[in-house]
Amino acid sequence: MVTVGERPAVRVRHTPRPSSVQLKFVMAVSGALALLYLIAHMIGNLKIFLGAEAINTYAAWLRTVGEPALPMQTLLWIVRVVLVVAIVAHIVSATILARRARRARPIRYAHRQPVRGSYAARTMRWGGVIILLFIIYHLLDLTAGTLNPRFVEGDVHGNLVADFAPSHWYATVAYTVAVIAVGFHVRHGLWSGLQTLGRSSAAAQNTIKGVALVVAVLLTVGFLSVPFSILTGLVR
């Protein structure tokens, strides 16, 4: 019974927070989407070795998929939206998990014992920052064209050759650092993601690590083959 002058108690409903398992699942799925995009993007880039017409025709085809039933660039915008959502979900999930890990151990040890883990696992955070910054640079360079020394809409071959020319060597350096960071990120992320999705039996650990390493190396070599072929004059 509520007496005069007293306010009835108000129940505040708190929105349930996602569990750490759910956040790891989101990271695994969003990482898988980003990995599929990287593989498709690398395959498209390698068309530069077939000549200017091949890669320019491929780029034009991407803009016209679905026409006339769908407006021009529909596929590209669907891919862009899905990729942005995946990257945001990946970053948010990683940030929340990192904060929870810090709160779980608020006291810093005077003598911290060495943590067992790979180099890739210990550098996932700064690697993610490098990748995010490079995505912004890459979009301004080869999509918007504002940072490209010679940007011509539709001339993907010419834009790449101008971007990775010897006189523009710093773009090649930035690209190399970012791609290596992607390789480390993919290696650890793929291994971790497969565990999250239920492939973590002891017998499968070596196989998972091997697959993650092979995928990371292939992506790294595939992406870097383009700028270095241009830099050395193999592609003109």
Rank of each mutant, 00 (worst) to 15 (best):
R7A: 13
H111C: 06
L194M: 15
E153W: 14
I180F: 15
P166V: 06
Y58I: 02
A9V: 14
G154W: 15
A110N: 12
W126E: 07
L160E: 02
G5S: 12
D155V: 10
L231V: 11
L147F: 12
K47D: 05
V29F: 15
G154V: 13
A32C: 10
A212V: 07
I48T: 03
T176K: 07
I55E: 01
T176C: 07
L35K: 01
R125P: 02
I43Y: 07
S19C: 04
L231F: 15
V214K: 00
V129K: 00
I91Y: 01
V29H: 05
S225T: 15
F25G: 09
I78R: 00
G193T: 03
G158V: 11
V84R: 05
K209H: 15
N159W: 12
V221S: 10
A54M: 03
W126F: 14
R112G: 09
V235E: 07
R105L: 09
F151M: 03
V177Y: 01
M42T: 05
I131N: 00
K47E: 09
L97S: 09
I87G: 05
P149W: 06
H188S: 09
L133W: 04
R80Y: 08
L147Y: 06
L213Y: 09
G5F: 13
Y170R: 03
Q113R: 12
L133H: 02
R100K: 12
G31W: 02
R125T: 09
A101W: 07
I96R: 04
L224N: 05
A52F: 01
T15I: 15
W169E: 09
V214E: 04
H138D: 08
V221I: 15
T15Y: 13
S118Y: 02
Y137I: 14
G198L: 05
I180G: 08
I107A: 11
V221Q: 09
P106C: 10
H111M: 13
V177K: 01
Q73E: 13
N206W: 06
K209A: 14
M1Y: 14
S200Y: 10
A9K: 14
R150N: 13
T207P: 00
L140N: 13
V226Q: 07
I91M: 02
A32G: 14
S19K: 05
F228S: 04
G5A: 12
T123W: 15
T95L: 13
H111K: 11
R199W: 15
V26F: 11
L76K: 01
I135S: 05
G183Q: 05
L36I: 08
V4T: 13
V226E: 10
H111F: 13
L219N: 04
V173C: 03
V177S: 01
I43F: 15
T123N: 12
R125F: 13
P227I: 03
L197F: 14
R100V: 04
L140A: 12
P16R: 06
L35M: 04
E153A: 15
A52Q: 06
I135E: 03
I230S: 05
W169C: 00
M124G: 02
D163R: 11
G117E: 06
P149R: 06
A101R: 14
I136F: 13
W169M: 10
T207D: 12
H188A: 09
R17P: 01
I130G: 00
L234G: 04
A110P: 08
V2K: 11
L133I: 07
M72S: 10
W191F: 11
R7P: 00
N148I: 08
A121L: 07
V84F: 11
Q205H: 09
R116H: 10
T3R: 14
